[in-house]
């Protein structure tokens, strides 16, 4: 199909009009906001709650207890969690037998697809921050928190550090240097639980991904 490639590029090059007037892209509209930390957190919460996200603010040293309370409240019997990330280790340290079973994503998906799809109640992942303007979590799945972890289980818990909330998507990507350092295999913005309105404009949650998205904001 190299012929196709050269034909297409040739047509584009030869057909290109000289008269392309390209106006300047002024990104200030999508970049600049004057919100302080408290405002950003409030806005984040308001926006993500407006799309059915659940937010719990908790002191940084009390989140495990809060998580345990929520797991009990939601009658969750097992939780998929990293076994290497720092918060996960903290969690594992405080865990005991009466609590929901902790699972880990140690094997490639091919080895336990059916189990992941059918038997995991909930997962817990970290995040790389959030975006206030749209109520959005930023996740970069990796070896310890693979991509399907935040997608397949019906309930997804996310840890968010309160000081990691950016005003806009633009700020998040530029301050974290996404374009300059190169993108990961998969980067995600998540704003609420999975939903659809494909049946007569009626909202329904959890159509393919998690039906519940629960954010623990560590203050």
């Amino acid at each position: 199909m190299n012929q196709a490639r050269s034909n297409i590029l040739k047509r584009l090059r030869e057909g290109r009009k000289e008269s392309f007037g390209v106006p300047v892209s002024d990104f200030s509209l999508v970049r600049d906001r004057n919100w302080n930390a408290a405002e950003k957190l409030d806005l984040f919460q308001q926006k993500i709650e407006s799309v059915q996200g659940e937010v719990h603010r908790v002191a940084a040293d009390r989140w495990v207890a809060e998580l345990i309370r929520l797991l009990a409240e939601k009658k969750i019997s097992n939780l998929l969690v990293s076994d290497r990330k720092k918060p996960a280790l903290e969690l594992r340290e405080q865990w005991h037998e009466e609590l929901p079973q902790l699972l880990s994503y140690q094997r490639p998906i091919e080895d336990w697809k059916s189990e992941l799809f059918n038997q995991v109640d909930a997962s817990l992942t970290t995040s790389r921050g959030a975006i206030a303007e749209t109520g959005t979590l930023i996740l970069w799945p990796d070896e310890d928190e693979p991509r399907l972890m935040s997608l397949v289980p019906p309930v997804h818990f996310v840890l968010l550090e309160a000081d990691q909330i950016y005003s806009t998507f633009y700020q998040a990507m530029s301050e974290q240097g996404w374009a300059s350092q190169g993108m990961p295999t998969n980067a995600l913005l998540i704003s609420g639980p999975s939903k659809t309105a494909d049946i007569e404009q009626t909202l329904a949650y959890g159509v393919h991904g998690p039906a519940e998205l629960i954010i623990l904001v560590l203050e």
């Binding site: 295999t185 980067a187 995600l188 913005l189 704003s191 939903k195």
Partner: peptide, 9 residues
């Protein structure tokens, strides 16, 4: 914003 913005590289 939509629920997911999925960036694959």
């Amino acid at each position: 914003i939509t629920t997911y913005f999925n960036m694959i590289s």
